[in-house]
């Protein structure tokens, strides 16, 4: 019980430390540049307390319940005793041995992204200003699928030992081609969704997976090859959200084309 209380206090303190510079900047500009009082100050303060307490409880809960088990699982799934390599790893590495790692990476990437608070915030905003044309839930689903594919491919890259930049450059080329054809209204949102996927929930679990994998495979340097999963998790959601918009547009166009035929 004691450990919970000390943990809550230390996380609360560090959250306040994170928020402090933001609040100082906002208050400074509001009072000295805009030169106006805050409207509904009491409401804002209550909301801010909610945000700080919310992040604190969220982080403490993750730290106590999910991260220890999640990181332990990442280590176990990548350990030699579980993988039980079919080939002599000093000669060659069979990528098929690591199938459970790719599946775990895909599942955990999907699940953690769905719970990412920053993504929920952006999705709520997008639904509000698009007057419901973009559904918050579908957007989050598209982003989660993107992260899921990204992490699975990223773990495969670590196992196969191919260069990171090849994947990233190929991803950029796909994004650029999609940008030319996707509906204009989705582009900003799609680019943004790359950055919001990777914060509080996803990063610790995914990093543990990357480092565990790079440590377990002979010839990989955990410091060098352990990195790069986050980059995958930021790139593939862009492709997924653009694809979501393209598919939606295609479906509506097809439905519109069909209607006159039915009228004959």
């Amino acid at each position: 019980m004691m450990s919970w209380i000390t943990e809550i206090f230390s996380v609360l303190l560090s959250t306040i430390k994170d928020v402090a510079p933001i609040l100082i900047i906002i208050v400074f500009f509001q009072l000295f540049v805009i030169k106006r009082q805050f409207a509904q100050l009491k409401n804002l303060m209550v909301g801010m307390v909610y945000v700080i307490l919310g992040i604190t409880f969220f982080l403490v809960g993750l730290d106590k319940a999910l991260f220890p088990l999640g990181t332990l699982m990442a280590e176990q799934l990548t350990s030699k005793s579980f993988i039980n390599p079919t080939t002599d790893q000093s000669i060659s590495i069979a990528w098929q041995d690591y199938t459970w790692v790719y599946i775990f990476g895909a599942c955990i990437g999907f699940a953690t992204t769905l719970a990412e608070p920053a993504l929920i915030a952006v999705a709520i905003k997008a639904q509000t200003i698009s007057a419901g044309n973009i559904k918050a839930w579908y957007l989050r689903l598209a982003v989660s699928i993107g992260v899921s594919v990204g992490i699975a491919l990223g773990t495969y890259r670590i196992v196969s030992g191919t260069e990171l930049y090849l994947y990233i450059i190929a991803g950029y080329v796909i994004v650029i081609i999609q940008t030319m054809f996707a509906p204009k209204m989705i582009i900003g949102l799609a680019y943004d969704s790359g950055g919001v996927t990777t914060s509080t929930v996803t990063v610790p679990l995914v990093t543990a997976l990357g480092i565990g994998l790079a440590t377990a495979i002979p010839g990989r340097n955990p410091l060098l090859d352990g990195f790069g999963l986050i980059a995958f998790a930021s790139l593939f959601p862009i492709i997924a959200v653009l694809a979501y918009a393209q598919i939606t547009e295609w479906l509506t166009r097809r439905a519109q084309l069909k209607r006159p035929e039915e009228g004959d």
């Binding site: 209550v46 909301g47 801010m48 307390v49 909610y50 945000v51 700080i52 307490l53 919310g54 992040i55 604190t56 409880f57 969220f58 982080l59 403490v60 809960g61 719970a115 608070p117 929920i120 915030a121 709520i124």
Partner: peptide, 8 residues
């Protein structure tokens, strides 16, 4: 925590 955050 998530509930409080979204409310805030």
């Amino acid at each position: 925590g998530l509930t409080l955050f979204i409310q805030g």
